[in-house]
Design a protein around this nucleic acid. Structure first.
Lengths: 133, 133
DNA sequence: CGGTATCCCAACCGATACTG
DNA sequence: CAGTATCGGTTGGGATACCG
């Protein structure tokens, strides 16, 4: 029998919708780009490869844990390359991959919109907050 | 005296860096766009105004709480308008504002990149995960 | 130098129940 | 119909300490 309660059917619909959302390339990209330190890391690497330590000093607000995790995720996605530079002491170079570099124009579009419209957003927020409750 | 310990100086640097990151328009936009339900809500509203109930049925995976919170944040940012439609029972129309509509081309660029490159990302992830640990 | 490992708090988010 | 309120589990992310 395919008899199901209304609650069961709703749960199934919810689940399949959630799966589609999770699988959607746009949502996956927005999710990644929305990670707290991803935008700024890509921005810095856009200017050229950097050592791990240089990245740390460039983004002192990011904890070591978060910086490393961010870089690992980007590496796993094929957007960033990680290269160990032999020597004493050893160094590690991070750089955008060719794929990662194709993201720069996208980020530029986002930055362009943001800088052009941030004042409008702030104005809207002030109006909203000042609104009679 | 301006004497400070090294730890104090590092803490100050971290704090000012954090403030700059939080104030950066690009980061603020990425943060908003990265919210779990923002992309999909904007996508649906891009096709025209929708009643609250229509949005709920369009995105059954989002809980009522999250859908409402998402819409409130977008309304506060001036990206979405909320219009109560009198009647019995009352209805509420949600729509992109003119400002919100200017975000659609940006979202289209993101979607374009994502759909064009999602296969490369998935391939990179498989390679990374299959890599000798 | 470039990381891991661990702990812990805060924010996020869903489920459920209730309301004008 | 379109919410609000509350609770509780899960995740994100920082601090600290330690390691090759």
């Amino acid at each position: 029998m395919t008899t199901r309660t209304a609650a069961q059917r709703r749960a199934e619909v919810r689940k399949s919708c959630l799966e589609r959302v999770a699988a959607c390339p746009t949502n996956r990209l927005l999710d990644r780009m929305g990670d707290k330190w991803v935008g700024i890391v890509i921005k810095f690497l856009g200017d050229g490869p950097l050592r791990y330590g240089e990245l740390r000093r460039s983004i002192p607000a990011a904890s070591q844990k978060m910086l490393t995790e961010t870089l690992r995720r980007l590496e796993r996605d094929g957007l960033v390359s990680r290269t160990v530079v032999p020597g004493a002491p050893v160094g590690v170079d991070y750089a955008l991959t060719p794929l990662g570099r194709t993201l720069l124009p996208v980020l530029a579009v986002v930055t362009g919109w943001a800088e052009e419209n941030i004042a409008r957003i702030e104005h809207a927020q002030e109006e909203y907050d000042a609104r009679p409750r």
